[in-house]
Amino acid sequence: MSEVKKENKIDKLLNQEMTRRKFMKISGKSLAGLTVSASLLSLFGCTQEQVDSGAVSLWTTPTGLLVVNQAKCTGCQRCEINCTVVNDGMVSSHTSRVKITRNLMSNNGHGTYQDDWVYYPDTCRQCDVPACGEACPKEAIYADDKGVKHVDEAKCVGCGACVEACPWHMPTIHPETRKSTKCILCGACAEGCVTGALSIVPWDAVTAAAQPTRKN
């Protein structure tokens, strides 16, 4: 796709009333080459250059747009710490629902031990049709009224089907509780990120920023 066509496409997109449904169309895809409006960039805490370089990923979630900016991730692991202390009452990297440690040292030729510092937190995508839930033999993964997927611990048997089914292996079977740990969008990871590399932008803010003309 030519640069001009790409720009036209995103401009068209961003000039419409932005809804979660519309953002779904670009969710998870590289934004490289797309021009993002200044107000949205400001909201996402990133620059057009970071978008162009592929450092920024966006994921639509029921509560907001999840922005991951790997140029800003400094590997402190506080996302994992906050995730597990809030959700499990104990601290762990392995069972965390957001995962930085597995990317930190060595990650497909990148990472600390590969002589660069390219790493980022993997997050649950809160897929509309979740592979984890589809794969669960006990139908233990359900959506609440907002669309956030939870694990019903009473039903979960810790079989690990969700771990295998998720293309990014985001759920983890907690070695002690033998229950699936799966992101429930509590937001503790993003709230505690000390460089804003991870943020969740609420939909009303996204919508407002994406339609400056209408708002005015």
Binding site: V85, V86, G89, M90, S92, H94, P175, E176
Partner: peptide, 15 residues
């Protein structure tokens, strides 16, 4: 490699 968890007595208080 450590895949276990560290237990804290008062996770809410710690946070």
């Amino acid at each position: 490699r450590g895949t276990g968890s560290l237990k804290v007595a008062d996770p809410k208080g710690l946070k």
